[in-house]
Every structure is written in structure tokens, then in C-alpha cells.
């Protein structure tokens, strides 16, 4: 990948990628692998970009699709899939943010199903329900209801932890 492509087409949107990858990973090492993979797939798929949507929306799609279907083997050789059935415990080194509230919010987000994680991340990024539906490919009418449900679940998970 040319440095130019990275600087002009990925760096301005790295925030999107970082936020999404953090929601689907449980350690700094996994996060770096996911981030790298998303960048690689953006580079590989760039010729398929047809400007029907904005570049940022397309980056969201690639990032989300890669995170949803990434299979990573941990160093200890146990196959690992970040799963909603596996409560997330983020105790890891520099994977955590310096803002404790944000860490708690991410912990709660990681306990959601993978699709719910995607929806709430897009919602928090101030995407409209229509944009969320476009990125995920679902019925626009159901997004609002789902967002409210996810927010209630997050509130319960965060109850009493954040002032």
C-alpha cells in the first residue's frame, strides 16, 4: 500500500476504524490486528468503490464487515471469536482508554450481540437511522426501535457505575 493512499484515504477516517475495531476486540494485540486487517481490506477493495455512497460510509461498511467476519487465532493457540456469549473483561494494558467512563461504556457495548454493537456504534457516531439501515442493509423502520432497546440495555449495564 502506498503511503499516499494511507495518508489521504485512510488516516482521515482512522477514528471510525479505531472505534469499531475496539468494540470487537478484547486486547490491544487483537485490536492492532483488526485495525491492520481493515486497512488492508480497504486497500484491496478500493477499486470496487463506486462513489454511490460517501467514502466514509464505505469505510464504515468495510470496517464493519471485516470485524463481523474476522477469525483470529490467539497466540496461545486457542481459537478465539469475540462472541456475545462471552462476557467481556477488559483488563488489558494499553487497550483501555484513559477515560474511565468510556472504558465502561465500551465494556458494556462488548456485551451486546455483534449486530447490536454495530448499530449502537453507528448511532453514537451520529449516523441517521437511514444511514445505519443503509450500512447494515436492514429495514429502516426497525432501526429506531432497536436503538432504543440497545440504549436501555446499556443503561442497565452501566447502572450505578457512571455518575
Amino acid at each position: 500500500m502506498s503511503q499516499d493512499f494511507y495518508n489521504t484515504s485512510i488516516t482521515p477516517f482512522s477514528g471510525i476504524i479505531i472505534k469499531l475495531c475496539r468494540a470487537y476486540t478484547s486486547s490491544q494485540e487483537d485490536f492492532e490486528d483488526y485495525y491492520q486487517e481493515v486497512c488492508l481490506q480497504i486497500w484491496r477493495s478500493k477499486d470496487n468503490f463506486r462513489a454511490e455512497s460517501e467514502w466514509s460510509t464505505w469505510v464504515y461498511r468495510i470496517s464493519l464487515n471485516v470485524c463481523l467476519t474476522l477469525l483470529k487465532k490467539k497466540k496461545n493457540n486457542t481459537q478465539h471469536f469475540v462472541s456475545d456469549s462471552m462476557p467481556y473483561l477488559d483488563t488489558v494494558d494499553n487497550h483501555a482508554f484513559s477515560d474511565e467512563s468510556l472504558n465502561l461504556l465500551y465494556d458494556a457495548i462488548r456485551q451486546l450481540s455483534e449486530i447490536d454493537r454495530a448499530i449502537i456504534m453507528l448511532y453514537l457516531e451520529e449516523k441517521s437511522y437511514k444511514e445505519i439501515a443503509d450500512i447494515i442493509g436492514t429495514n429502516y423502520n426497525n432501526i429506531g426501535v432497536r436503538v432504543q432497546r440497545i440504549k436501555s440495555r446499556l443503561k442497565k449495564l452501566l447502572d450505578g457505575k457512571i455518575n
Partner: peptide, 11 residues
């Protein structure tokens, strides 16, 4: 398979 499609179509 295009990874840039919406998630539903892609999956």
C-alpha cells in the same frame, strides 16, 4: 464477494 456491500448483503 464485495466487502464494501452493506453487511446484510455481504453476510
Amino acid at each position: 464477494i464485495d466487502k464494501g456491500e452493506n453487511s446484510y448483503e455481504y453476510l
